[in-house]
Amino acid sequence: MRVSELPIVGDLLESGAEDRVFDSLLLVGPLLILVIAVAGRSALTTGLAAAYVMFFVAYVLYRGVRH
């Protein structure tokens, strides 16, 4: 079974900016929030959250430059 065949996930991948990196960020986001809620604030979780935000911004800029 492919990821795109999963309920909800499939619909999500069909919508949006049609870019697999953004789709991945969308799928990873809630998992990361869940991990933070369970594990609390630590160097690792802070690093992961910061990396998520910075990667999002960097990728938007990268797409812009490449465009």
């Binding site: 949006g16 960020l25 969308l26 986001g29 809630p30 990361l32 929030i33 935000v53």
Partner: peptide, 8 residues
């Protein structure tokens, strides 16, 4: 997507 970015 923006909501997740905002929360984090």
């Amino acid at each position: 997507l923006f909501t997740f970015v905002s929360i984090l």
